[in-house]
Design a protein around this nucleic acid. Structure first.
Lengths: 121, 121
DNA sequence: GTATATGCAAACAATTTGCACGCCT
DNA sequence: AGGCGTGCAAATTGTTTGCATATAC
């Protein structure tokens, strides 16, 4: 993967926020440094970066969001303010349970807990 | 919600398979009984049925799938054969943990475990 | 020099919606 | 009769892709 200014900035934008941005948000942000960057380029770079494991992709309903935090963690999604928060649960050894009980080789776990955060009643 | 033949059949199609169908698959299936049903109607009915809790909606990457099984359960998704299998894990009392640790009122949990089922090496 | 990356616009796929008409209740 | 449900097609939304040009190495 060859260096490009565009990819460099896409990556640093994703990695310097914890807002789990969409491609569109990243696009708007990168535009501040590279005004003539195109949305297609942002998508291409987000794909490459997540395929290579530099960032994570998470599915939020029908839209894809990106996450600079690549440590294993889960998400709380408040359906009032739509904020997504990272959480770390005590690591349950899912891998072993899933292997023994279902004979299934786990490679990825996506856990999203939806509900109401403490800002709402 | 008023009776309609279309909704009735959409519901029974979703509830009589465990293949976690997409809207398109349901459409093709319902067509066998109602040849001139439209895709829009299928979408509208899937939405109503899931909003009312008669069926579940699950997100599979960027496509939405539907599930006639409305009991609490999780999914194993094989990324070789793309099959989605229902599993029931020992109910960990997530609700309590999430409330105490994060002050967050859980209303829904979506857990998808991706990996390789025992048909592949 | 050559292959990869880019900008642009068109193509795509999944889903939603406006409208006139039809059918439950 | 009144209103919800339908078929149809067009519109939207999020994302991908083809192509000619630009850039890294």
């Amino acid at each position: 993967m060859r260096y490009s200014k565009q990819r460099d900035i896409v990556q640093s934008v994703v990695c310097s926020t914890d807002c789990h941005p969409t491609a569109d948000w990243v696009f708007a942000e990168v535009k501040k440094s590279i005004p003539n960057i195109s949305l297609g380029t942002v998508y291409r770079n987000l794909k490459q970066l997540s395929d290579s494991g530099f960032i994570n992709r998470i599915q939020d309903g029908s839209v894809t969001r990106y996450d600079g935090n690549i440590k294993s963690h889960y998400h709380l999604k408040c359906n009032k303010c739509n904020k997504i928060t990272d959480i770390i649960l005590q690591k349950i050894d899912l891998r072993k349970i899933i292997k023994t009980k279902f004979d299934f080789e786990l490679s990825d776990v996506e856990l999203t807990i939806t509900g109401k955060c403490n800002k709402h009643t």
